[in-house]
Simulated assay, not measured.
Amino acid sequence: MDEDDLLPLSALQHHLFCPRQCALIHVERQWQENRFTAEGRLLHDTVDSGGREKRGAVRTVRSMPLRSHRLGLAGVADVVELHGPERRPFPVEYKRGRPKAHRADEVQLCAQALCLEEMFHTDIPEGALFYGESRRRFPVALDATLRALTERTALAVRAMIRDGVTPPPVHEARKCQSCSMLDLCRPRRLSRPPSVAAWLARQLDDAPEDDLSADDGPANLQEDP
């Protein structure tokens, strides 16, 4: 697959969090930042600024470019640790908040691992998510279920971008309030648009009586003398 056709790894995380958010960003090319995205960006900038280091048998590489031509994905890993003399990659993705009920963060990590497997010609059974609120790593088993979900999500994102279709909004209060795209998406209003009949009724109620008279209607026509 050509480099220009590769999807950004982050699109998988966006799609699993909310397909409409994914389309607004990657189909319509819109973006809006809020406190959460700003804090996440600052966290990534801090991680990315560390360069390379080696401690014992572990070499740490930050901001490693990733590619998977099989899946059509490209991106940058926050941290990749190279373990042991065989330099087995171990991806670590940094997130500002806390572990979530959905699997969007895990899919993003798994996508990184699939890229690394293709690049290093090796198997990667595990990675980790580091959350800023707890300041802890959470190990993630890259099992068959997570891999299948990751590959399905990549196919879904590719189809969405190819078709250029933005899904309609679905208002979920807790999720929507944390989304930086809230003002652009307008989920509360657009998920329940007013009916045409209600709109017409309001127009008639608001119109002056003079505007409602049929001055040029059949009942008011006068015969020519």
Rank of each mutant, 00 (worst) to 15 (best):
L182E: 03
A141V: 15
K95A: 10
H15E: 12
R174Q: 04
S49T: 11
F130W: 15
D215Y: 14
A101K: 15
A57D: 11
L24P: 13
D224G: 02
V79N: 00
S10L: 01
S63T: 10
E133D: 14
R192Y: 10
A219Y: 13
P187V: 07
V196M: 14
A113Y: 04
Q30T: 07
R174A: 14
E3S: 13
E223W: 10
P19A: 01
Q203H: 07
P125D: 07
A101G: 07
V196L: 15
R202N: 01
A148H: 06
E33R: 08
D183C: 00
G127L: 06
R88W: 04
D123K: 06
Y94E: 12
T122C: 15
R135C: 13
A201M: 04
A154N: 02
C179A: 03
G40N: 01
L129C: 05
R70S: 14
G127Y: 08
C115H: 06
I25Y: 03
A23C: 06
E33M: 08
V27G: 05
W199S: 05
E3P: 02
P91W: 03
P218G: 01
D183P: 00
M160C: 08
L43N: 03
D224E: 08
A144M: 12
C179S: 06
R135T: 14
D224Q: 12
L116N: 05
R136F: 01
